[in-house]
Each structure stands twice: as structure tokens, then as C-alpha cells.
Design a protein around this nucleic acid. Structure first.
Lengths: 158, 158
DNA sequence: GCTGAAAATACTAATAC
DNA sequence: GTATTAGTATTTTCAGC
């Protein structure tokens, strides 16, 4: 699967506003509707476009606290990781899971209503998964949260 | 702006798949099309639905490295924060910015092609913003990344 | 608040160029 | 790749309950 500048432009528009009609996209990228639509289809089938979703306002639901949990594994084995991830998968508040290089093994982003809910989550996590240590970071403010990829930083090969 | 169980259900469906037709949503929540459509409109106007976007596959573009940068401020003043954020706003690779409680002041999530690009970014950041210290976390694996809110954890008041 | 149906719009697919 | 077409599905509005 390869891209040219037009593909990048189309995808960049769609990751900002997926409701934009094909007619408008094709105008902006300098194509007619048919090839533009075919490119979009191709990206959906290839999985480049993974989903189209609605982004909701966390504050509207009282989900006021975002926190990050850095987890240190009890042992650095494949078995431990599988065990840990199977516990984490049951925790709805855990939205993102990254496996890390360095002194910590996993970084979790969690979204909860308040510190009480966070406390309960941490209690649950540490009770059910064998963890050496946790280190939590609390967000006082979500200054910017953007799932969009920085496509402008991509340099196309020649 | 208040929600009932039906609103939560509608929004949960939309944050998983925004292409779902209103007819199908209304079926699943036990409403007919018009009231269901009106509720969706209301949420768009109220800002509960902030946007509808396409989620893209970072690996498809060679954006293989996600890293987190914990920043310690040179001074804990409003002026410093404004100055720092104005620099950060110019860095396309920085996707999320959280202001933190505790020993670090900001957490940045950055998406770059490789470690060389990360190095250049860090160089740029530290050259242009007055920063006391930075601490970077490298993701070896994106186990799960979900912008969706955990609406199932919400308990409705009575 | 709800239902049902009509109108406007956009999407999807196929055509010929 | 473009332009045009047509059929389908969806969105949106409008009546009425």
C-alpha cells in the first residue's frame, strides 16, 4: 500500500472531519468525485482508515479525571505480560495501554469521574495483577487531546 | 444538558462507529428515527459530540514511534506556562498535552517516525522553551489506543 | 414527547471518454 | 485519470398524534 500527496491530503481531511462529503473532498484535492471516492474505499479496505468515530466531550459526562499509571512488572516474562494484560482488559476505565522501554514496563491512560474512582481502580488493579510498583500522574488540565496523526510531518519518498 | 440511558446508548454507539445509520441506531435504542435523530442533533449543537473523525493506522504512514515527555517547568508561573504552550503549539508531532499535578508539570504525547525524529523534536523543544528537565518514555508497543470514553462506567443520577 | 412519510442530499456503482 | 448518469441509501424536514 503506497500513498501519494493526494492520498495524504484526503486522509488528513477525513481525520479532521469525517462528515465531509466526497464532493467537497474531491474539490479540495483537485480530483473529480469518482477517483477520490475510489481512493477512500481503497483506504478503508486496506485498513489505513480503521474506523470513523464520534469524539465526545469527557466533561459532559463528569469524567473529569484523566490519569496515567506507570507500571513496573513483577517479572519481565511473556507470561507476566499476558497475565497483566488480561486483567487490564477487564478495566473499562483504562483506555490506552503502551508497553514501554526503560525502567517502567507499561503506561496506562485511565479516564474516571474522580479521585475516589481512581483509588478504587488502582486498588482493583494491584489486587488482581502481580505488580512490583505503580507510579501515577494526575492531569489537572487536558490542554489538548488529538487522536489525529501528524501527517504534515510525513515526508514522501521519491 | 442532561442525559438519560437512551442518550448514553446513542452516544456510545456513535463513538464506536459514527457511520451507523440513524435507522439502525434507533432500532438498537428502541426509538423511531426522528426522535433519535433529534437527540443526535442536540448533542452536536451542545458540543457533547465534538467531532466525527476518521481514525487512521499510524503504522501505515511509518509513524512508528509514540513517546511521552514529562516536562518540569523552569518556574511555576502562568507566564511560563503560556510561553511553554506557545512553543508546543508549533510542534506538529505533539498530539496531546496534559498539565500535571506533582513533580512534573506537563505530559506530552508525541508521534514521530523514528528515534532520530524524536531526538530532533526534543532538541527543538529544549532549545526554544525554558525547561528545567525532561524525562522521556518510549513506547515499544501500542497495545491499545482508544479515544472512546468509558461510558459504561457512568452512573446516572436519579 | 412520539410516529410515519415525503423531500433533499449524498453515496455507490457503472458507463463512456 | 474525467465526466456523466442512474439507482440506492441516508439525512432532514414536515405533517399529525
Amino acid at each position: 500500500m503506497t500513498f501519494d500527496r493526494i492520498d495524504l491530503k484526503i486522509l488528513d481531511l477525513l481525520q479532521r472531519d469525517a462528515t465531509m462529503p466526497v464532493a467537497q473532498i474531491s474539490d479540495q484535492v483537485g480530483l473529480s468525485q469518482t477517483p477520490c471516492w475510489k481512493r477512500i474505499q481503497r483506504h478503508k479496505e486496506a485498513g489505513t482508515i480503521r474506523a470513523r468515530v464520534a469524539l465526545l466531550d469527557p466533561d459532559a459526562f463528569g469524567l473529569n479525571l484523566t490519569a496515567f499509571i506507570m507500571v513496573e512488572a513483577m517479572e519481565r516474562t511473556r507470561e507476566w505480560r499476558a497475565e497483566f494484560l488480561s486483567v487490564v482488559a477487564t478495566l473499562d476505565a483504562v483506555r490506552d495501554v503502551y508497553r514501554l522501554a526503560g525502567s517502567h514496563d507499561f503506561l496506562l491512560r485511565v479516564v474516571v469521574p474522580d479521585t475516589a474512582a481512581f483509588d478504587a481502580l488502582l486498588e482493583d488493579l494491584t489486587a488482581r495483577a502481580r505488580i512490583r510498583s505503580v507510579n501515577s500522574l494526575f492531569a489537572l488540565e487536558r490542554v489538548a487531546v488529538r487522536p489525529q496523526l501528524p501527517l504534515s510531518t510525513i515526508v514522501l519518498g521519491r
